[in-house]
Amino acid sequence: MTERRQFSGGMKGKNLRYLEGECRGFSGQAKVGFLLLEHFSLPAFTQALDTIVTANLLRPALFTAQTFAMQDGEVTSDLGLVIKPDARLNMEGLHGLNLLVICGGYRTPLNASPELSHLLRSAAEADITLAGLWNGAWFLGICGLLDGYRCAIHPEHRPALAELSKVAHVTSEPFVVDRDRLTAASPAGAYHMALEWIKTLHDKALVEGIEDILSFEESRYRRIKASPHLSVSAPLREVVKLMDANLEEPLEMEQLAAYVGRSRRQVERLFKEQLGTTPQRYYLELRITEARRLLQHTELSQVEVLVACGFVSPSHFSKCYSAYFGYRPSKEIRRVK
């Protein structure tokens, strides 16, 4: 049996991240609760939830998520869409939670009932990490749960929180993670906030895998970005960027060298010294890694994928895929949500 090829240089981590990783001081399944307040920001909520769901796509059953409301029945989001939460939040609902996210919105009334305040303080006493989306930080602040913490809140509600919680540091940042308090002022902030929390529990590879899946670009074929994760010289970084931008029609070595003002031999030496591999092998690994992502996370056919990643024939594609992953591309598991 032919021994499987191992990935080299900067591409190794991009493929290891799809394997089982290690937790950072956390074992078992983390439970997240989302408290949906009236007129909560649906985009902020879905960004945070999607980040957690995507983590489960890469490594199943890392997280569970449950939605709550302060009353029975439905809750209306800021976009007018109505959601029926899983349960009403009470002391029993707090049991087993690792993270409780207060989901506010632009039109969410700044009115914390005694019941909500009691539940939030109880959650803090139970060492549950607390988070606030949009103006969710205000509800933490009114309970004194941001005293001595840095936090983020939507600009519209920043003065109100600063006046209410004078010993909190109310920032203008899109998101803040300060120990066991997580806050975000926008949907994009909610995404990064959730990523940072996951990073405290699990390895960097998982976080980068989530980023690869959720970092959409202009083209559906452009989600793998190797260059930001490489500590290499400027000329080599430019070559890698050119490779990354030309997967469908791979450039020849002479073209790559000419574009960066180096000879072919100079480029080959840069790859050998800084990435421990050859340009040809790195280019192949970049293309095969993107092919795997497309097969796992899109509905593109195998033929569409091999064309998008610059392979000349199904047999060549299958041979290369099997050499690295140990099975044919037709056996790849689809993880389309």
Rank of each mutant, 00 (worst) to 15 (best):
M1H: 03
E3Q: 13
R4A: 05
R5T: 12
R5M: 11
S8F: 08
S8P: 13
G10H: 04
K12H: 07
N15C: 12
L16E: 04
Y18L: 06
E22T: 14
C23G: 11
C23D: 10
G25C: 11
F26W: 06
S27F: 00
A30C: 05
G33V: 02
L35R: 08
L37R: 13
F40R: 05
P43W: 01
P43A: 02
T46N: 00
A48G: 04
A55R: 02
A55V: 06
L57E: 03
L58P: 01
A65V: 03
T67S: 01
T67G: 00
A69I: 05
Q71W: 08
Q71T: 15
D72Y: 01
V75Y: 04
V75P: 01
T76Y: 03
S77D: 03
K84I: 01
D86Y: 04
A87Y: 07
A87H: 08
A87C: 12
M91R: 11
G93I: 11
H95K: 15
L100P: 03
L100S: 09
G104A: 13
G105V: 12
T108K: 03
T108M: 03
T108S: 02
P109Q: 09
S113A: 04
E115D: 05
S117I: 13
S117T: 11
L120A: 06
A126R: 15
A131P: 00
A131G: 01
W134F: 09
N135C: 11
G141N: 02
G144L: 15
L145D: 08
L146D: 12
G148T: 12
R150L: 14
R150H: 13
H154V: 06
P155R: 13
L164Y: 14
S165G: 10
H169S: 14
T171E: 08
E173A: 08
F175T: 05
D178Y: 14
D178F: 12
R179E: 02
D180S: 05
R181F: 11
A185D: 06
S186G: 03
S186F: 00
A188F: 00
H192D: 07
M193E: 08
L195G: 11
W197A: 04
T200I: 04
H202G: 06
A205T: 04
V207G: 08
G209F: 00
E211D: 08
E217W: 03
E218P: 00
S219I: 04
R222D: 13
I224S: 15
P228E: 12
H229C: 09
A234T: 09
P235V: 10
L236G: 14
R237K: 05
L242C: 05
M243Y: 06
M243F: 02
M243W: 04
M253E: 05
L256Y: 05
A257E: 02
A258E: 09
G261Y: 09
S263R: 01
R264Q: 08
L270W: 04
K272N: 08
K272Q: 06
E273D: 14
E273K: 06
L275Y: 03
P279A: 14
Y282C: 07
E285H: 11
E285Y: 10
R287P: 10
R287E: 10
R287C: 08
R293F: 00
E299D: 09
Q302P: 14
E304A: 13
V305P: 12
L306Y: 07
P314D: 08
H316E: 15
H316R: 13
K319G: 02
Y324S: 11
R328W: 02
P329Y: 15
P329D: 05
K331F: 06
K331Q: 09
R334K: 12
